[in-house]
Amino acid sequence: MNLTIRQRRIVWAYSFLSVSLIFFLFIRWYPTLLAVNISFRDWNVFAGSGEWVGLQNYADIWEDLFKPRSAVRAAFWNTLRYVLFGVPLQLVLALGIAMLLGQIRRFAGFFRAAYFVPYVTSFVAVAFVWRWLYQPQIGLLNQIITGLGLPMQPFLTSPSQALPSITLVAVWRSIGFAIIIFLAGLQQIPDMYYEAAQIDGANRWQLFRRITLPLLNPVIVYLAVLQTIQFLRMFDLVQNMSTDNAGGPLKSTTTVVLEVYKEGFSGYNMGYAGALTVILFLVILLITMLQLRVLSRRVDY
């Protein structure tokens, strides 16, 4: 066969791509499909097989939703709260910080690095450090609070404060990523728009509202979708910040993924865990599609 150089290049490109395709098929797609299959079975972890039980696992989840102190009900509700608190807070803070960072010239690299460092730190390390900071009586935060003469705060040991406390850490941990993306987005906006608007007498708010925000829309959508998915899959922080009583106190911090983990790997209820995973997948899919529809706007000037 005589191939032109161009054709040969294409063939090589496809053969290299097919390697990663095979990897994805087996490491991503196959387990995903297996999880769907398992969710319809009474799966035995050790035997690696299970009887087909149809929608039984889904029915069990539905039933469990209405039990007193239901772990799954708490998990879905908390997961929603993580998203509702975490995503907007993350986006607003990140945009604000990015705009400030975009204005400074001195030490700009240092500041950017400082905000980005938490993002490259492992979730587990972050969780342990913050758990110590939050500790009642001896934690640094409580030492400061009581030092100022204010009452000691329970933070992670309070059913009402634990979830916001963890959300804040999650935002702090991954805000660096959002800032970098926003910075890049801001730099894409041509200066001439601002200059033109300023000549027309627009004030700072109008510049932000009419130029920055609309032109950042693709970036905002991208980040909103990505961060939502991340908060919907919240696990590491919760697991490591509420040891002894993971997801507690009183199930106030548990998430869907944490319940999947508990059911699947310590209760050995793989079918139930699989069904929860499938539900979470569908929720993520639905929310992402909604976000893309509602948030996406094409803006041209």
């Binding site: 191939l3 032109t4 054709q7 294409i10 063939v11 053969s15 097919s18």
Partner: peptide, 15 residues
């Protein structure tokens, strides 16, 4: 002609 060669090669790869 060239196009066809390319396709047959690609399908071979896929198989």
């Amino acid at each position: 002609m060239k196009q066809r060669k390319l396709w047959s090669l690609l399908s071979l790869l896929l198989i």
